[in-house]
Amino acid sequence: MGGVHWLALFGLILGAWGALYAMALPAELREGAAIYGDGFLQGLCIVTPDAAGFGRITVMWALMSAAMMAPTALPAFATYEDLGHSAETRLGALVAGYLGVWIGFSLLAAAAQMALFRAGLLTPLGDSRSGLLSAGLLAVAGAYQFSPMKEACLSRCRRPLAFFIAHWEAGPLRNGVRLGLVCLGCCWALMALAFVGGVMNLAFMGLATVIMVLEKLPDLGRYLTHPLGVVLLAASAWVLLTTI
């Protein structure tokens, strides 16, 4: 596969991060919203979930997914290309199938954000305004770190060679979908913490991306998964205790 395909992939990742940076709300406005309330943002014409509509929120989540999840799959993409040794590998189809799964996740995440906002549990920025919601999301994410499903999905992400050999005949698009589903099984709970760390919060997105990349590394990742679960459960307990 020619280098142009990798340039296009890295361009996609950098473009997604660039778009998120352009869309991110400055810290000063976040602080103003905390002091003056939601009307402060609406008065400045900041788009809120109800005004933006479902489609705009979905695009936001799709950009987040591309920016955060594509880097975690780069070793798998490289492994797939190495197995093909020719243009027949069709890396673009593999990436398309992978990102297609995350677009589906973006639809669900956007629907959840709209519903939680209308229920008064999220701010117009998509941040949790409920201690119980934050504690619950942290507890679910922490407990999921110890689940058999998480371990099964991580084992496939950490061994992409065996994964692709087992499903090689399915072709690049279907393998991309399979890889996306496995990756979703690894990371959906951590992605849901955007409602705690702040949707469109660049610091949270950067930290979460680094954690998810490291967790999928075969040598380092196995030492990270369970300690991360302990940290998340402890954070859940702390949030619960401080909001009662």
Rank of each mutant, 00 (worst) to 15 (best):
G2H: 04
V4Q: 06
L9S: 06
G11I: 06
G11S: 07
G11K: 01
L14W: 01
A19E: 03
L20P: 01
Y21P: 00
A22I: 12
L25A: 04
P26G: 14
P26F: 09
A27I: 10
E28N: 08
E28W: 08
E28D: 14
L29H: 15
E31N: 13
A34K: 07
D38C: 03
F40T: 06
F40N: 02
Q42T: 14
L44E: 10
C45V: 09
P49A: 14
A51C: 05
A51I: 09
A52F: 00
G53A: 05
G55L: 11
G55E: 02
R56G: 00
T58E: 01
T58M: 09
V59I: 15
M60S: 09
A62P: 00
L63C: 11
L63P: 02
M64Y: 01
M64T: 13
A67T: 11
M68A: 10
M68G: 07
A70P: 00
T72W: 03
F77T: 08
A78M: 10
L83W: 01
L83N: 04
G84I: 12
G84E: 10
H85T: 09
S86A: 15
S86W: 11
A87Y: 08
A93N: 05
V95F: 08
A96M: 09
G97T: 11
I103H: 02
G104Y: 01
S106L: 07
L108C: 15
A109I: 10
Q113A: 04
M114H: 01
M114E: 00
M114N: 00
L116E: 02
L116G: 02
G120M: 04
L121E: 08
L122M: 10
T123C: 10
D127L: 14
R129W: 01
S130C: 11
S130Y: 05
G131P: 04
L132S: 09
L133E: 05
A135W: 03
G142T: 12
A143R: 00
A143N: 05
Q145A: 14
S147V: 10
S147F: 09
P148Y: 06
P148I: 10
K150E: 04
C153D: 07
L154R: 06
R156M: 13
C157K: 02
C157G: 07
L161H: 11
A162M: 06
A162E: 13
F164H: 04
I165Q: 13
I165G: 02
A166T: 11
H167V: 12
E169A: 15
E169V: 14
A170T: 05
P172L: 09
L173M: 14
R174W: 11
R178C: 14
G180P: 04
V182N: 04
C183L: 02
L184E: 07
G185N: 03
C186W: 01
C186K: 00
C187T: 14
C187M: 06
A189Y: 01
L190W: 12
M191P: 01
F195V: 09
G197Q: 04
V199F: 03
N201E: 10
N201L: 09
L202I: 15
A203L: 15
A203K: 03
A203W: 12
A208P: 00
V210Q: 03
M212H: 07
E215L: 13
L217R: 09
P218K: 10
R222L: 12
L224E: 08
L224R: 04
H226Y: 11
H226T: 15
P227V: 11
V230Q: 00
V230D: 05
V230C: 13
L233V: 13
A234Q: 01
S236K: 04
V239C: 06
L240D: 02
L240P: 00
T242S: 13
T243Y: 08
I244C: 08
